[in-house]
């Protein structure tokens, strides 16, 4: 049956999501370096130096949080293996509502 064949082909894509999460973190850190550079030439909507410093710190903090989060998910995925059990879960599901 087609559905049965499909199950065999299916793969666990969680590593993709974890990479994505790490990339968000890297992007946030990358963006933090451009804040003061972009603000320098601004005429309208210029932020104060204090604001730029605070925003930069916060961007870096959140970037690190996201990277730590992705490491935690990596541990959950490959050390605790709890993510992979869900993938095997092929029981007949019922649409939960209606």
């Amino acid at each position: 049956m087609a559905a049965a064949n499909n199950i065999k082909k299916r793969k666990n894509h969680n590593w993709c999501g974890i990479t994505l999460l790490a990339l968000y973190g890297l992007f946030t850190i990358y963006a933090s370096f451009f804040l003061s550079y972009l603000n320098k030439d601004k005429v309208i909507g210029k932020l104060s130096n204090e604001a730029i410093a605070g925003i930069k710190e916060s961007f870096i903090l959140w970037g690190i949080i996201m990277i730590i989060g992705s490491i935690l998910l990596l541990i959950r995925e490959y050390v605790l293996k709890s993510g992979q059990e869900e993938v095997k879960d092929t029981e007949s599901g019922v649409s939960p509502h209606y």
């Binding site: 199950i7 993938v87 599901g93």
Partner: peptide, 11 residues
């Protein structure tokens, strides 16, 4: 009839 066939996949 809905069957869950994988993570976020349904038939």
């Amino acid at each position: 009839c809905v069957t869950k066939t994988g993570p976020g996949e349904f038939t």
